[in-house]
Structures are given as structure tokens and as C-alpha cells.
Write a protein that binds this DNA or RNA. Structure first.
Lengths: 189, 189
DNA sequence: GGCGATGTGGAACAGATGTTATACAACCTC
DNA sequence: GAGGTTGTATAACATCTGTTCCACATCGCC
């Protein structure tokens, strides 16, 4: 049934399938056949949308990033609440955010020795830092270069909690993560 | 030339070789043949010391952990300096620590969907937390449960800086990492 | 209504990789 | 000094995986 399929949507279906498999059993389990099957297709279709497995992985990472970015736009909130919400978004407190973290970890592991993937990861981080710095400026907590440094510190705190929560989920239910984040943030401002 | 080789030492040579390859080009590049070759041997020897590739990876991770742990024992220092040194040890400020981080990232990626590996990673984290909490108690910064919570916050801060430094090394020379760590720590106490 | 383009399925291919088996060499012990 | 043990190299094996290829179905368009 060609021409009826929305190409972009199908690509997202496939990257979502890849993300699910990666989060469930790691990149090693995300073989081309399995990703296609998870999306209800076969490798013939998969290769129709992604030239490489490498391209599939890159797109999966960026789709996961886009998914998180789309959650940012909580309009109507003051800068302070947006900042807090953005940092909370970096914690693996639900399935979607945990899945994003897993994809990120797998991607980082694969980016070792692959300059293009490493660049993608680095750029994503810088973009996030820019966004946080922007919010920091709007809160008035810090300005200019100070905002970037403050953003780096905020992100460090959020990521640090996230890492611990990721690999010891039993000890880190969502509430505990949020409490740790808040404690750390209040100590910084 | 059997019987002349120290089994433990040879195992370390092999896990070191694996760690180098993993840090250089990722786990995918650390094939059995390449690991053996990096150590100046062949797969025949490698399988003589490690039953599986999985066992090799697990031992590589734990050897890397042991290497870092051995750097802790800086006797003669007061608790405060030891604490600071321990946290600084979590930053990828030199090749050895960066290599350990790379091994850890690869290991975490592989631990997804492998309960035994995940347990090893979690236990390592808890052990580290216990060590930091012990130092926190000795500094008098906090006591009992408070020490553990404080340790978690210190580790979060150090890991957060480490993560940013790992994947954007150009922006994060050693001095900048140390400055960020010190800034964050002074804000917490 | 035929034709080309687009999606899809399925099979086949080639390469790599973990693993196993075998043969040989060096050492210790008796 | 013979025998057994340990370490090492080499080769072979089986499997898996990314990739390519081809046939077929479905649609828009002239």
C-alpha cells in the first residue's frame, strides 16, 4: 500500500521500535530483523527508510531527543517553573524518560570511536545547555556567561541524580529523585 | 612457556588490553581476536583465561574498578582531603580515569537486559557510595543517614561534571572540571 | 486502462565473530 | 629423564547479522 504511508510517520514508528528494543535489552538486541518485526514489518521495509543500521541508530537517538524537546514547551509557566520542569525532564522518573536515557547510553557507547555519532551527542548536550542557560537568564539567577556556568551546574546535578537512579532503580523511586534534585538545586541558588 | 606466567598478572594484562580497546573504539571493536592481539597473544590463550566474552567483559569492568579503588588509599591525609580526592577520582581528568569511564559506559550499555552485569554495576555504585559516606562521616559534615544522603549528593555532582566532560572534552580540560567540582562542593557544605 | 513509481516481503549472500577442537612446546615433579 | 600438566597457536565450525537483491502488490497519473 504505497503512497498512502506518511514517510515521516513510518520512520518514527521504526525509530520508536528501535528505542523500545534498546531500552529493553540493549543495542545488541536491536538487530535489523528484530527492529523491523517490532514495528510489524520486515528488513525490506526497514532498509527502505534507513540506509544503514548506523543511520537507524542516529535517527533513533535524534527522534528520542526530539521527543524530549517537545515536552519542554510548557507555556504559561514562569521562567522558574520552566527551569525546574526542564531539569526534572532529565530524570528517569517515567518510562518515556527512562527509555530516552537508555537510548542515550547505548548511543554514547556506540559513539566511542565514531566521530559523527560523538558529534551528535556533543551537539545535543550543548543545545540542552543553551536552553537551560536561557531559562537561567530569564529567572534572573545569573546573566551572560554566568548563566551558562549556572546551567552547567544545574545539568550536572540533574544528570548526577539521573545516573544513580538509572542503574539502581529500586533505591530511586521517582519521589526520591525529585527530592534529591530539589535539595541540590536549593543549595545552588 | 607455561608455569612461568603468573595467572593473575596475565589476566590483568588481558583485561587491560580489553579496556584499552574499549576506550579507544568501543566494545564493538573489542573482539576476542583483537583483545588477544592487543595483549600480544591469540584467542587460544584468551579462552584459556576467560570462558566467555561475557566473563572477559565482567572481569575487565571489575579490574578497572579495582584500579580506581587502589588509588583511594592516600594515607596521611585528613578526611576532608581524602573526600575531595575521592570525588576528584570520579572525574575523567587523565587517561586512566577516562579509560575507566569508557569501560563503565560500555559496561552499562551491555548490562541492559543482563541482570548479572546490571547487578555488578549497581553493587559497584553502592560500594562507592558507602566509601564516600564513610569519609563524609569522618569529616563531620553529616552523620548516619545524613552521611549517605550527603554522599549521594556529592557523587551526583561529581558524576554530573564527569558526564559533561566525557562527551565534550574540548570544552572541559582538567582544570575546568576541578573548578566546577569545587564550586559545586562548596555550595553544598 | 496501462505504466511507472513506491512499499513491502522474503530469500540469499558475504563477512565477521564467539566458540571449540587439536597439535605442539615448555615447564614441574617424581 | 619420562610423564603429566599448563600455556599457546592455529585452524575449523557454526551462527548471527548487516546488507543486497528480486519479485510482487498497490497506488497515482496520463
Amino acid at each position: 500500500m504505497p503512497r498512502f504511508v506518511d514517510v515521516d510517520e513510518r520512520r518514527i514508528e521504526l525509530t520508536d521500535a528501535a528505542a523500545r528494543l534498546i531500552a529493553r535489552a540493549g543495542l545488541g538486541a536491536a538487530t535489523m530483523r528484530d527492529v523491523a518485526a517490532e514495528a510489524g514489518l520486515t528488513t525490506g521495509s526497514l532498509t527502505h527508510y534507513f540506509a544503514d543500521k548506523r543511520e537507524l541508530l542516529l535517527c533513533t537517538f535524534q527522534a528520542s531527543l526530539a521527543g524530549r524537546r517537545s515536552q519542554r514547551s510548557a507555556r504559561g509557566l514562569d521562567a522558574h517553573s520552566q527551569l525546574r520542569a526542564t531539569l526534572e525532564g532529565a530524570l528517569p522518573v517515567d518510562d518515556e524518560r527512562r527509555r530516552h536515557w537508555m537510548v542515550t547510553v547505548a548511543f554514547c557507547a556506540q559513539a566511542t570511536g565514531d566521530a559523527e555519532l560523538a558529534d551528535a551527542q556533543r551537539d545535543a548536550y550543548r543545545e540542552f545547555r543553551g536552553h537551560v542557560a536561557n531559562l537561567v537568564e530569564r529567572t534572573g539567577i545569573a546573566q551572560r556567561d554566568g548563566a551558562i556556568q549556572m546551567a552547567e551546574r544545574f545539568i550536572a546535578v540533574a544528570d548526577g541524580v539521573a545516573i544513580q537512579a538509572l542503574f539502581d532503580p529500586e533505591s530511586w523511586p521517582a519521589e526520591r529523585q525529585l527530592r534529591a534534585l530539589d535539595d541540590l538545586l536549593s543549595a545552588l541558588v
